[in-house]
Design a protein around this nucleic acid. Structure first.
Length: 468
RNA sequence: GCCCCCAUCGUCUAGUGGCCUAGGACACCACCCUUUCAAGGUGGCGGCACGGGUUCGAAUCCCGUUGGGGGUGCCA
């Protein structure tokens, strides 16, 4: 009746960390494959952070990468929640079991005594003083003698000497629970069987394991995932790095690409790297997870995203790009956007996009009353008299065209270029700059075809006039 | 300081004692294709941190060194 239970517990701090997303994906893959339960517990023992909009943000970010909790647990202000009561009650049970004791020393007291005695850390001074609860009294865990062996599926057995672990605080002087306590109690009460999290938590695991045992429970399966680092090889952080999953969504990364890339950080799919979720889900094994930190490489993410964009059908591509195409800060007004024109150009736009946001900039000239002219490109192109002459010839030739198709436009311009000894590559430049405002862009003749005869001729003549 | 983790091309990694002259992907470079720019194709550059063992044989096992990271809060 009770299968494996996995849980992620992101803190609602206003954004969802990509590292958290990777952890969530690993948990999700296992929960799905093993027919387990995915528990989402958005928590923070600081009530200030449990803001509903931040909590919703995490739910949305998870939904974006295809994850929806089987068993969600959110809360409002922590101190008024049932969870806080549970945590305090559990601490009480620890006291009764003799696994925790009260201490009236402040941090300053501890430091002073260490100074005097040349020690480091809290030395269990209040262990046998028989103090009861009271204002300013913290509750400390009584770390037993011996060693603690953490059985980690990805790292193997890791041994810790308990003598080196101080009697850590469970309840603050004001009676509020510490995160470490809250975390363990939630895991225990939610019957979590597998704890997968980043490696930064490995050092705290013996403390948590001792608490599980003191509470009379078998510890869960531990799995510490390699850290995600930046180019300086440091843990990626909000301050220095782009860590918010939401930001990647806003910049036009496809969730499938993001998921695929995130999965390759610390784990390698069999065969090719780019593969559908269903396959990764069926192959993911904790035992195959790497041990060393992984660099979150934007360039590789971009490559994945480009590949996923190219795999989209035209209709899917349009649907995916629509928010950026119709955005208020798009390079053209939303009312001038034409889906049919976009669809016609889509196959040429896709290979030119790294993100969905790039599309608008590739096709802007199609939806603008007048193209935005890049002055430098214009000057460079029309510095030669030949270019100006080609433009005149093309206007004349296009005027006489009976068929307004990419093929016809191309051969007509090729013929014009030939009379002046120019290859197509050179001859198309003046037309491209006149019509699109730039020297680079999607294939010209296809663009002219969808732009239409009237508008193309208008722009070509406007360019002629400007040059005169 | 103490504890813990980690160590293969620039990056992500394959590799679990002979299939390794170390394979792939991203990045980079060159060429091809080509109406510009992309995309695509072909090829190239480039790595087992170091020192000792063990072994007939080591990227792979052991020890040490060095280097990197994480933890060590009345933060989460």
């Amino acid at each position: 009746m009770s299968g494996p239970r996995f849980r992620i517990a992101p803190s609602p701090t206003g954004y969802f960390h990509v590292g958290g997303a990777r952890t969530a994906l690993f948990n999700w893959a296992l929960a799905r494959r093993l027919g387990g339960t995915f528990v989402l517990r958005i928590e923070d023992t600081d009530a200030e952070r449990n803001r509903p909009e931040w909590t919703q943000g995490i739910v949305d970010a998870l939904a974006w990468i295809g994850i929806s909790a089987d068993d969600p647990h959110f809360e409002g202000p922590y101190f008024q929640s049932e969870y806080a009561q549970q945590h305090v009650a559990a601490a009480q049970r620890l006291v009764e079991a003799g696994a925790a004791y009260y201490c009236d020393m402040t941090a300053a007291d501890v430091e002073a005594r260490n100074q005097a005695e040349g020690n480091q850390g809290y030395q269990g001074w209040s262990r046998d003083r028989g103090l009861g609860p009271g204002p300013g009294h913290v509750l400390r865990f009584r770390v037993p003698a011996g060693t603690t062996i953490v059985r980690d599926v990805v790292r193997g057995d890791v041994e810790f000497d308990n003598a080196l672990i101080e009697d850590f605080v469970l309840l603050r002087g004001n009676g509020s629970p510490m995160f470490l306590l809250a975390n363990v109690i939630d895991d225990v009460s939610m019957r979590i069987t597998h704890v997968l999290r980043a490696e930064e938590h490995l050092s705290n695991t013996p403390k948590q394991q001792m608490m599980w045992q003191a509470l009379g429970h078998q510890p869960p399966v531990w799995a510490h995932l390699p850290l995600l680092v930046n180019e300086q090889r440091k843990k990626i952080s909000k301050r220095r790095d782009k860590v918010a999953l939401e930001q990647y969504r806003e910049e036009g990364y496809l969730p499938e690409a993001m998921v695929n890339y995130l999965m390759t950080l610390g784990w390698t799919p069999k065969g090719v790297e780019i593969q559908p979720w269903s396959q990764m889900e069926s192959e993911f094994l904790l035992e195959d997870v790497n041990h060393s930190p992984a660099f979150f490489d934007l360039k590789k993410l971009a490559a994945f995203n480009g590949e996923y964009i190219r795999k989209l059908s035209c209709e899917q591509f349009l649907a995916a790009c629509r928010p950026w195409l119709l955005a208020s800060d798009a390079p053209f007004p939303a009312e001038r956007f034409d889906e049919q024109v976009f669809l016609a150009m889509a196959p040429h736009i896709q290979p030119r996009c790294v993100t969905l946001a790039d599309a608008a900039g590739v096709v802007d000239f199609l939806f603008l009353a007048d193209p935005v002219v890049d002055e430098e490109a214009w000057a460079k192109t029309f510095v030669s008299a030949d270019a100006v002459a080609v433009l005149h010839d093309v206007v004349a030739a296009y005027h006489l065209l009976t068929e307004w198709t990419a093929e016809a436009l191309k051969s007509s311009l090729a013929a014009v270029g030939e009379t002046r000894g120019m290859k197509l590559g050179k001859a198309q430049a003046p037309v491209r700059v006149s019509v699109t405002g730039r020297t680079v862009g999607p294939p010209l003749f296809e663009a002219l075809e969808v732009l239409g005869r009237t508008e193309t001729m208008r722009r070509l003549r406007a360019a002629e006039a400007a040059l005169a």
